[in-house]
Computed example of a mutant assay.
Amino acid sequence: MKSLALAPALLGLALALASCTPTSAAPGSTSDDARPVTAAAKLPLVVVHKNASCGCCNDWIEHVRAAGFRVQVRNEVNLNPIKERVGVPLGKGSCHTAEVDGYFVEGHVPAADIKRLLAERPAARGLVLPGMPIGSPGMESPDGRSQPYTVELVGFDGGTSAFSRH
């Protein structure tokens, strides 16, 4: 009986301790998500390189955060050197480039595809969603319109193959 009486107190203590999870800011960031990371959502940090004035990039960042990722934003004047460094193939670019756990993510790739990439860990450089398809995360249309799009997996040789279709 005594253990049942202690249960509410122990639950309260556990909840209080869980709410004290510290967050850490990565050095050199221009913006960082200050929300604590829960035990269920220990996803890796996503570093997003973008132009400071890009609104659709900010909308995509919010989509990724809502999916449980911590995000660090780095506003850049010229994204081309970053795209070249990580291996985005010519003609497959978009408005922002992200790096997450050894992979790159180019463009408005859905967070579910990023989670799948991290779970499956294919031998590849990353994912691309060329252009800015209407209806992709961050490119939602007020009237609900969307166009079909394909997220591609980029191999180490720069070749691509379909990863998911939306």
Rank of each mutant, 00 (worst) to 15 (best):
D157M: 03
Q72M: 05
K50G: 07
G102W: 07
M1D: 14
Q72F: 01
A16F: 15
F104W: 03
D32Y: 13
A7D: 09
L13Y: 07
G28D: 03
S24Q: 09
P122N: 11
F69M: 05
A67D: 11
T30R: 11
E76T: 08
C20V: 12
E76K: 03
F156Y: 08
R74V: 06
E152M: 12
R70Q: 15
E62R: 15
A40P: 03
G159P: 00
A5N: 06
I134S: 03
G158T: 03
E84R: 13
T38D: 15
A111C: 12
A18E: 15
V71T: 07
P148H: 06
P27G: 12
R65A: 08
E76Q: 12
I134V: 15
G126M: 03
P122D: 11
M139L: 06
A25E: 11
E152V: 06
G131K: 09
D157N: 14
A123E: 15
A66I: 01
S24Y: 05
E152Y: 14
K2P: 02
L11W: 02
R65K: 15
V109S: 08
D32G: 09
P22M: 10
I134E: 08
V73P: 00
A9S: 12
A7M: 15
N51W: 01
V46Y: 03
M132Q: 12
T23I: 11
L90S: 04
P122H: 07
G68L: 06
A26G: 10
Y103H: 05
S19T: 11
P133S: 15
A39K: 14
G93C: 07
G93L: 09
G55F: 00
A5R: 13
N51I: 00
P137M: 06
H63K: 04
I61P: 01
P130L: 05
L127G: 09
G158Y: 08
G155E: 12
S29V: 14
D59A: 08
G131N: 11
C95I: 05
R70N: 10
V77W: 04
A162E: 14
L11R: 01
M139R: 00
A111Q: 07
